[in-house]
Amino acid sequence: MSKVIKGPVYVVKDNIDTDQIIPAQYLNLIPTIEDEYEKLGSYAMCGLPDSLYPERYVEEGKVDSQYPIVVAGRNFGCGSSREHAPIAMGSADCQLVLAESFARIFFRNCVATGELYPCECTDRLCDVLKNGDVVTVDLDACTVTVDETGKTYSFKPLGDVRSVVDAGGLFNYARQNNMISA
């Protein structure tokens, strides 16, 4: 994956739990089966209430989102341990979530699966940005620049987590580093 990710953002607020990321009724899909993985992507973030989020993350009838970056408030990914959540987002072509903070299991599942970079930004970007704003995220410099205004914000370095996501998840990383046999 490239070290610079550029694209339009999809913006959500605080406490987006795993039910809103992937509603429980779709947990009958098994992420390790290819066409079910794809289907999970089509439902990514579809549990967000329409009254608060009238625009869907993935358009009806599509399997991928036009938004490679999700911007969120506090406690993104709280709730259940379902790995279907980061997987649905990754399957929908999301590459990165920029949140004020993450829930523990979701953060870990992002890393273990290698589906997403979970980046923590102390600035409350979800109050600054709106759907469709284009940003450039530099994972090496740990900065996000808003194209229109040129304003740059920084986020916390990912540390050791970066290389695990780069490798495509826990198992790939462990193999590449001879921690488990290939």
């Binding site: 709730g79 341990s81 379902r82 790995e83 273990a112 198992f171």
Partner: peptide, 22 residues
Amino acid sequence: TDSHTCMAGAFNQFATGIGNTD
């Protein structure tokens, strides 16, 4: 593989939820 695995902490056990990959 369930977030409410922590319930077993009632029994003086370290119990926590994890994802499928872990």
